[in-house]
Design a protein around this nucleic acid. Structure first.
Lengths: 187, 187
DNA sequence: ATTATTTCTTGAACCAGTTCAATTTATTTC
DNA sequence: GAAATAAATTGAACTGGTTCAAGAAATAAT
């Protein structure tokens, strides 16, 4: 996590120690929930190992709509619920056994007061995140299913390797069956 | 703009004056470009009056894919191009005559150094923006065209009133013809 | 190692939404 | 306020993708 932060700002030893002191490490089994629908998102989680999915369960069909997939070196949280400390409509669950570093909401706010330059770090990763989400919307609207899958493979080979195909399909807004058929096409 | 900022942080008179001093006001005619594909996004623009669209022209079909719509009190910029000062693949154009307040890239960086608490403001609006984009992706994948339109009407009545229907259709990932038919259905 | 569970595949029927084309209605612009 | 342009509507033909169902392959659990 510290390496990730230091890609954008530099930290003193003291600051690193402080950061370490406020994070708690949690191990998740496959299927364990980091956040459940209806609960408040209490932690911002930085993924150290394994993979997680963020999704909403369709109240009618009961199907999972994948919002995001997260592997090592990514943050995973419901931004809105975490920052306003209100009930989330999202679930975050471990796809595989996973290890995450957790920062509670109060520790997060204190952290930003103690080390104000972290505002900059979070602003920058949010900028990148927003730009990526914008691109995802564009691709969803502009490209057909096959192109979206190809673009995904090119852009996120690590995600593709780590995550079951039917979850990738949902992430891309494609049915699992369609993605299977796309893969079967030679090309 | 200052009112918008003060929803999240408070500014002294001096800070307000400084902010005013670095912004330039620009009037746009209908159809004027704030940013053209291939150019670097030099300014972060805060919309004071009128409406703008951000879009990508499909290299194959030549059609506009709407990325975002902006009216008064919204920021409009290509985040990635602005922050890395690299060529944008996006266009930003005035839909109606519009007035915007512009902050150049260098002034933006200087601003954040001079008034560090603005990092917090921009972090928060980016948080909200990212959460909204996430929701847009979810709705795109989970709901059919009619539901998406209804959700849009409920969520952004001001946008709906200000923006031509065929641009809203593109924003929602619907054809203009389909949206017209949806509107014709007596609910 | 075996069993249980999850994930992936394939085919057939179907349908939500697109495309194309032609017309009508609004809105600009001079 | 007429002419020009932009925006919205409607219908018919089509298609990219979904849904359903059933079986095969892969992975996890004990």
């Amino acid at each position: 996590m510290i390496n990730n932060i230091q890609r954008y700002i530099s930290l003193s030893e003291e600051e690193k120690n402080y950061l370490n002191s406020i994070c708690s490490i949690k191990h998740l089994h496959r299927g364990d929930h980091l956040l459940q629908e209806g609960a408040v998102c209490r932690y911002d989680a930085f993924v150290l190992e394994g993979s997680l999915k963020g999704y909403i369960i369709d109240p009618v069909s009961g199907r999972e709509e994948i919002l995001f997939l997260a592997i090592a070196d990514w943050w995973a949280c419901d931004l809105e619920s975490f920052h306003s400390q209100t009930a989330s409509s999202m679930n975050i669950t471990a796809i595989t056994p996973a290890t995450v570093a957790l920062i509670s909401h109060s520790a997060f706010n204190e952290l930003l007061e103690r080390i104000p330059k972290l505002e900059k770090y979070f602003r920058i990763i949010l900028q990148n995140h927003a730009a990526a989400l914008q691109t995802r919307i564009y691709l969803r609207n502009a490209q057909d299913a096959k192109s979206r899958y190809k673009t995904f493979l090119q852009k996120y080979p690590a995600l593709n390797a780590a995550i079951p195909q039917y979850l990738i399909a949902s992430y891309l807004g494609i049915s699992a069956e369609m993605l299977s058929k796309i893969r079967a096409q030679k090309d």
